[in-house]
Amino acid sequence: MQIARRWLERLSLESFQTQLMGMVYGSGHAVLSRLDPRCMLIWYLFFAVAPWFISSLTVLAGMFLLLAVATVLSRAAPFILFILCLGLIGQVGWLFLLSLFFGGDAESALPLLKLTLKLSVVSLASITVFSGMDPERISDGLLALGMPAAFSFSLSYGYRILPVLLEEFRSVLLSYRLRGKAPAPGRFRYIRLAVYYLKLLVLSFYPLMLATAKRSRTTVEALEVRGFSYGMKNPASRRLKLEHLRTTWRDGVFLGGTAAYVSLLFWLG
């Protein structure tokens, strides 16, 4: 119990915040961050959609391998991978148990394994893209691929505001705790504590939303004052923003290599 508690203490919101921001913006040295964001997004689009239409186990397994390598190259944070595994095992394990309950047997594990593979391929692709490139590059990539400027800006702003939101979330949570009453020691104390904390986590979102609404008044005004809406309609501004995007031989090798590998998989399957 002591070890678990110490581990839980280390798993504070604060360390989560540090890890998250480190992952999101600290991808400068990852190999994949040197690729052109447009190529990465097209690449991602393929791996996010294609697996749903493939039923060959060989192809899926092959894709999984490729993406596992890509994930390593993108230097994803361990805790994200941990959450992914937890989610997959939880989801699929639960379905498997259910199938056993309704008269299934080991046979029913196979289609579930397929589902797991599909889910993992899509998830790993997302992790690769979102941790391999910083939000600024993703946002520029989206803008270059013809997404509206407001959308691509919201994406980068969303990331930028994350630490502020997390900070505020922490203080709201603290506010609840300072004025609340924790479950008294007794039977099922840890279960009651878990319920108490989960409840607080959910409740904390309401004040957070209201505070954000208030804050956004200034932000929206400031965007106006700093020429943002003017820039959205201004082709010169868009050109300047995307000036730094260049496709190089690396992108060719990356996309070509992936295409060759995937065709090989299809041929095998």
């Binding site: 200034t218 400031a222 700093r226 820039g231 300047l240």
Partner: peptide, 24 residues
């Protein structure tokens, strides 16, 4: 509440934000 006026992740991006919007 100047904190809500800062919309970009890095210091230089923030300082360049307006000129970039005006396409300079």
């Amino acid at each position: 509440d100047f904190d809500n006026q800062l919309v970009r992740p890095t210091v230089l991006d923030e300082a360049c934000f307006a000129p970039l919007n005006y396409g300079l």
